[in-house]
């Protein structure tokens, strides 16, 4: 699987890896047993590109985001694997201060529930200063200045939003504030967990536009965790499709959306209603999202919802294999799946 990188490299001569995930396995221990939330995930996050990680709830995409920050907490535990960052080594080995100064200054995070990601009792500006103090910023005024510039970028009045309490801001403003708090420490990696969920469509596209322009301008490596294929198609360079804690398909966004090879990817793409044409053509994905407690130990994790199922799927778990330059699929029937 270590070959992923080279093949992608063939497609894009300049591609460099910012973050290399190998054999990452995260297990959740509950009263009724141990369940893998991530199962031997291998992934290369390409520098200065937007990588989208997509999947339903329960696919392990948020756990993957937490693992990148070495933030998997009880009852979850990283049982195997590594997350290597170019200049920081294996993040899963970082502890204490080293870990604290990795989170924030190296990887800035915008949280899934960004609406509630700020202390309700402190003014927004004060919380930005708390960030600065946590990361030994010598000049707090410079930090605030940076925050003001970002706020202006995002069409907000800096003097108003920085002196406001979180509850005085609208949902979209809080979301943008979350992005500012992730960017103000000038990280090189931006991790976004469902950044546009819970926003109305207009605010959503505005937030995406901001993410895209700042990504370009600062040469950020951006990881976008989402379930929204529309968002993926709009801004990402690479796509990683996850199902039940495994990567089932990955490749460049353009190639993968044009020619999806995994039955799951095809199914979720088919479930998107078209703006033009018959609404009935959109077909919902059958079955229910993966339940971690019900994942079969052997065979393909998707087989119970798959229409291409063959006896082999019950016995052998398919491995991620290259089907095209930089395009990988984990499916036994991949060769048969053609329109």
């Amino acid at each position: 699987m270590g070959a992923d990188l080279k093949v992608i490299g063939n497609a894009d001569q300049d591609a460099q890896v910012e973050c290399q995930i190998r054999d990452l396995t995260v297990t959740f221990t509950t009263d009724s047993g141990e369940f893998p939330a991530l199962n031997h995930v291998n992934l290369d996050i390409i520098k200065s590109k937007i990588t989208a990680i997509v999947g339903e709830s329960g696919s392990g995409k948020s756990t993957l985001g937490l693992a990148i920050l070495n933030g998997v907490a009880f009852p979850g535990k990283v049982t195997e694997g590594s997350v290597d960052f170019a200049e920081h080594g294996n993040v899963l080995k970082l502890r204490g201060k080293a870990l604290r100064h990795f989170r924030g200054p190296v990887v800035g995070t915008v949280f899934q529930a960004s609406q509630n990601a700020m202390n309700p009792l402190a003014r927004v500006g004060k919380q930005i200063l708390d960030l600065g103090r946590s990361h030994h910023y010598k000049d707090p005024r410079k930090l605030l200045h940076e925050a003001e510039n970002l706020a202006r970028r995002m069409a907000m009045d800096p003097s108003r939003v920085l002196t406001a309490y979180p509850h005085q801001l609208s949902g979209g403003m809080r979301q943008r504030m979350g992005i500012i708090m992730a960017l103000v420490l000038k990280p090189k990696v931006l991790l976004l967990d469902e950044p546009t969920t819970a926003l109305d469509l207009l605010t959503q596209s505005a937030v995406l536009e901001i993410i895209r322009s700042i990504h370009r301008e600062r040469h950020l490596t951006t990881i976008l965790i989402t379930h929204d294929m529309g968002v993926v198609a709009e801004i990402s360079d690479y796509i990683v499709v996850m199902y039940a804690g495994r990567v089932v398909e990955q490749g460049s966004t353009h190639e993968t959306l044009r020619d999806p090879r995994h039955p799951y990817t095809r199914a979720i793409l088919r479930a998107i209603p078209r703006l033009t044409g018959d609404l009935n053509r959109a077909r919902p994905l059958e079955g229910s999202p993966p339940d971690l407690t019900q994942i079969p130990a052997t065979g393909c994790v998707f087989r119970s919802r798959c229409s291409y199922r063959v006896p082999q799927c019950d016995l052998v778990a398919p491995i991620l294999e290259s089907v095209d330059t930089g395009h990988f699929v984990a499916c036994h029937q991949e060769g048969l799946i053609r329109d």
Binding site: L66, L69, G71, L99, R100, H101, F102, R103, G104, P105, G108, T109, F111, A113, N116, A117, M118, N119, P120, L121, A122, D130, L131, R133, S134, H135, M181, A182
Partner: peptide, 23 residues
């Protein structure tokens, strides 16, 4: 969420404790 968010933004334990205590 904001306590977890503060931790994942690398906020020091003492500032986090202040957030927790006040709330």
């Amino acid at each position: 969420d904001y306590i977890l968010a503060a931790e994942l933004r690398g906020v020091t334990p003492s500032i986090r404790l202040r957030y927790i205590a006040r709330n």
